[in-house]
Structure formats: structure tokens, C-alpha cells
Design a protein around this nucleic acid. Sequence first.
DNA 1: ACGTTCATGTAAAACGATACACAAGGACCG
DNA 2: CGGTCCTTGTGTATCGTTTTACATGAACGT
Lengths: 356, 356
Amino acid sequence: MKRSAAGKAKGPSLKTVALAAGVSLTTVSNAYNKPEHVSDEVRDMIFAIAREQGYAGPDPAARSLRSRHSGAIGVLFTSQLSYAFSDPYCVELLTGLAEVAEENRISVVLIPLARRVVAPEEEVRRSVEAVRHAVIDGAVADGIDDGHPALQVLLSRGLPLIRSVDNSESHCVMIDEREAGRSVGEYLAGLGHRHVAVVVDHLHEPSSPDEAVEEDELFPYSRLRLAGIREGLAGHGRVTVVAARRNTAASGWVAADAALERADPPTAIVATSDVLALGALEALARRNVPAGAGGVSVVGFDDIPAAAPAGLTTVRQPIREKGRLMGRMLLDSSYTQRRMVLPTQLVTRTSTGPAN
Amino acid sequence: MKRSAAGKAKGPSLKTVALAAGVSLTTVSNAYNKPEHVSDEVRDMIFAIAREQGYAGPDPAARSLRSRHSGAIGVLFTSQLSYAFSDPYCVELLTGLAEVAEENRISVVLIPLARRVVAPEEEVRRSVEAVRHAVIDGAVADGIDDGHPALQVLLSRGLPLIRSVDNSESHCVMIDEREAGRSVGEYLAGLGHRHVAVVVDHLHEPSSPDEAVEEDELFPYSRLRLAGIREGLAGHGRVTVVAARRNTAASGWVAADAALERADPPTAIVATSDVLALGALEALARRNVPAGAGGVSVVGFDDIPAAAPAGLTTVRQPIREKGRLMGRMLLDSSYTQRRMVLPTQLVTRTSTGPAN
DNA sequence: ACGTTCATGTAAAACGATACACAAGGACCG
DNA sequence: CGGTCCTTGTGTATCGTTTTACATGAACGT
């Protein structure tokens, strides 16, 4: 098994295999990609020689370059990957997307994005690079605000993009965020609530929950939900906005606690996500204030799996289905639809009741 | 803004930009990749022309082909992606890995693998294809049994691979699964348990929990844990093995229930994962049998986040740290270590107590 | 004034595969 | 027997970069 050490020791390639097999480049390529175009004998012979040379099949990068597609799609996150996995909403969406990707035999590339508004220049540059370098055929971006430079790059690369916010320019799968908020406002107004605290998920991290909230800097969905809530309350009640530092139960706890601490505490707390709302429930529990009837009402959004066990009233949206649809819209060319609005539904549980 | 329609309408490329800017290909390339090698003036000019042409920067596939690296690593799962996200162990591991990937500005490609032993031929072929086509610089494979064809492909592609099972041939970050099992066996023996049911996560789906379990077909970790448990009991007690169809609480419930239904019910149930163990707790609750002292003891493995709230006795392993280390071993070239064994620790909670 | 270094920039050769157009030899058909 | 397919293959031209090695002129110390 001695090997001649002459010549440069380059790895095996289609060429070396073709040479050894005495067939053309194309034939070897076909053996891998279009087995039906090559006779069984020749194909087996080629594979045997490939194995012998330690050739693992066509190089994916070269294939992608030449064929102009890669068999992978990207998922853009507004946050760190490491955080995304702890967000039930993200996980659920990703699950739906992954289902479709699997059906289509496509793999999924996770790409974290910096938060545009506040991220240090460096962060943004970094996420643009990530998108620039990603070998993908398209992407899904959830909850990323318009004009994030990374989206621009994606678009100018000519890649299809599916989003979850309303935008006439790109395809999207969305819910009517504002309407969802309104249903909550109306519901609370109907229960007699006159002062509602809204815990919002903030784009940047405010130094304290008391800091005035710049509504420009909210995530698109937070802004719309907040607007909807105000609309739904329609003058029946006033709103105090409290910012959470991050979309975690702990942050929700802190923010809700600050609201309850006020001289004029609210009779209801709405959080722009269930995770925050669960934190608010925690805040109430620690203060021995009951949630719902006879105490302070709490409402969330999304109806993540943990909401029901906690008795949390929330606005349900079909998260997993949303992920699936985004995937289909991206991968299934028979989907001609450009824009899809999914239904939402207020699910009342024990965390809400009439105002005290 | 009329455009000459002559010539083929190909997209912009380094070449078109270089031509329009009156500089060489290399210079344009450098403007993107080695900004310090190009004067500010020229660079800005190049970017301006690029923007004008709608050029989004060097093509990732071509870059990968030429430079021989892609800025992405793969994660191989034994299961469907859609399922992996609902497995707390996976999520935790992924989180750790993602942290490191982010630090290194590397993106993560999710690649599902078919279960080798039983998967239909087609499934295996499909997962091998997925690995073949993935544009990655290396991969992490957790809990995948030796000799899975996809691993072979990866290896013959010459990609670095980090695994979580003991194998002298490849780098790995692991725990001493057997020892972990033994600690449970010894613990239960010490508590006086003489009959222990072990709920194992099975590679294939047995038709019923009563079916004889082929230990060859267990996941590597299940097999080792089971062996460890036997060793720990060391003749003080006997073991009944029950197979769960999948690694979910529901399956754990069914399997545990079957064990409890026996003529000679066990006094303790060990499950090879916390998820299964939580299902076992559920089974006890439904039967109004207390868990732990005065009832049936339940032990799990891994100490996932949900274990503590449930009072589940379990063998803790530093899952997230494991993910981080796998990532570092793959990405940080200063990590020369080939093999790393992480500590485990039996964490006793309320789900265990003396045998009745 | 001379060699050395630095800052810029250039030219040409890979990188490894797939698409496209076409060819040889049978089979088939009327 | 001539034409038309079908099967199995073959060459060759790209795909769009990065690399490697080299060129140019200015700056600089001695």
C-alpha cells in the first residue's frame, strides 16, 4: 500500500476519481447526482474507486457555486442565539420552520443579528458580515425591524426573504398585532380596569424600568401591541408603560414590580409577551397579591406552552403554524401568496378578573 | 436610469465592479476582506460603485470554494429537528454551543440525522446527502452511535468532528455514563430497593413497552447508563428494562405505567433521561402513588431545568458547559486536548426515598 | 546616494464542481 | 431501411472568488 510521494499531495476530487476510473468528469458527477443517467456497473465502479481514494463526494462549496443553490435556508434572530433557545416563542417558531425544512430536505442555518438601533457599530458590522458570508438560498426573519442593514444585504443578494412584519415590499406571514392589542384593551376596559401597566420588551436595555420609554425603540411587535392596547382601552383607562430590560421572566418580574410599587398602582398588567407576563405573575406572587379576580389582572401575548399551566390570560397566535407557513412560503414554489395574516384569539384564563 | 439591455443580463460580480471602478479584481476583493490593504479613497469609491450596481459583496459560495472554509459549523442530531427543540437536553447543549459560535462569529447549521439501525434505507440516504451537501468547516455530533454512515462521510470529507461518546478515534467531550449509572444503582441499593425498573430511550420504536428490549438497539448513552445501574445494584436488586417509544414525557409515562402494572411492581423507577423520568412521575401521580419516601422512587439523568421544580432526583451533568466545550474544541485551535470527561453528580431530591 | 521597508495595487492561476450541447450505439416502428 | 427515440456517455466553458507572487513608488535611516 505504498503511495508515490511525487507530485503535490492534493485531496481527491472528481478529476482524480474520473482519471482513475477512466471515465469523464461528468460521468462521475452524474454518478452522485443523477444516478439514473449512469449504468449500475459504471456507478458501482466509480463509487469503489472513490472509496479507495477517500473521496467523500462532490465538494459542497463548488457545487453551490456552480449550481447556484445550496440546500440551506437561514433564520435571522434579533438576539443572541444562546438567548433565542430560551425563548419559547422562538423555539416554537423554529420548530414549525424545521418541520418544513425537513420535508424539503433542506438544512437550517442559524444567524444571529445585532439589534440595530442601539447595538454598537461593531455589532452591526458583525451581523452584516454573518449574512454576507452565509451560504443560503433564502431566509426567514422574525420580528426584525425594517431597514436593518443585514436585511438589505440579503435583499441585494437577491435572496428571497420571508418576514413577520407588515411590509408591502417583502413576503410575510404575520398576525394583526394591533388588533391583538386592541382585543386586550377592550377586554380589560370591559372588566372595569381604569389603569393598566404595559410591560414592553425594549430594543435596548434601559438603565431602569422607570426611565421614560422611547416608543421608537420598541420592537415592531411591541409598539403595535401597545398601540392596540391603547386603542382598545379607548379613553376608558390610562396606560403606564414600563420597559423590561430583556424578554425574560426575570425582567418581566422587575418591570412589573416597579409598576406595582408606584403611588398609583395599576389594576391590570399587560405584558407584550407571555414570558414577561409570567414574570409579572411571579411579582404578584412574591407580594402575596392574588392574580386575577380580587387582585391584579395579568395578560400576556402569544400563548406559549407555559401559559396554560400558569392560568395566564393571553392572546393566542398559531406560532408553530406561522413557522411552517414561513417555511412553505420560502421553499414551496407553489405558494404564490405574498402575504398571509394569521388569526389571533384572546384566551381568558384565571389571571384576569374584574378590577378591584 | 435606462440600462443598456445588450449582452447577457448577469448579476454584478467582483469583475463588473472592478471594471467600473477601473481597478483590479484583487483590489475589490481586498476592499471587502482586507480593508487595511486598500486606501480609504479607493475603498469608498469601490463601495459606491458596488452599491450602484446592487452588488452585495463577494459571493459566499465562491469564497468558500476558493478559501476552503465557510464560517459555519454543523450540529448533527439523532432526531428530527422539530423534535430536538422540544428536548431540554438538546436545547441546553445547543445553547452552550451557540454561545461559543457567537464568540467566534461562526454560524450554526442544523442537520438532522436518521437513526441508523432501524431507519428505512431511504432515510439514511437522505441524511447522508444532507451531510454531504452541508457547507461547513466542522461538526458536533451528540449521542450518535459509531459508524453511522453520515459520520463516515464527515470524516472522509476531512472535517473535524467532536462527539460525546467515547471513541479513541475522534475528539470528544463526554461524561462517564457508566459511572453515572452506577452512582444511581448504588444509591438505590443503599435505600433498600431490590427491584428497579429502568425506562430506556430506545433507538427504534418498540411496538409495546412489554416487548423484550434488544440492548444493542439502545442509544449509546442509554446502554451505558443501564449497564452502570446494574453494576451499582451489584446483585442487591434485580432490574426490569422497559422501553420508551421516544424520549418524551408521554412515552415515559406509558413505559413507567406498564412497569407499575406488573404482577411484581418495582419499588423504584430509573429513567435514562429526565424527560422520561418526569413522565414516570406523572404516571405515579395519576395512580395516586406518592413519589419518593412511602411510595415509588424515581430517578432521572441530566438534571434539566425542569428537574429541580419537580423534585426529581437525578444525575447532574453540566450540559451547557458540555456544549461550550464541544464548540471550543472545534473552533478554538488553542484547545489541544483530544478528550475531556466532565464530572457528574447525583442530586437527591424528594422523588426518592427508602424502599417500602 | 543606496539599500530597505511600507503602503498600494496588479496579473494570472487555481478552487472543484455542474450545465450545456452533442455523439455513438441500439431498439423500435411503420 | 430510414428515421426517431432512449440510454449512456463525453468535452468544454463557465461559476465568482481568493491566493500567490510580483510591481511600483514613496519614505526613511544611514
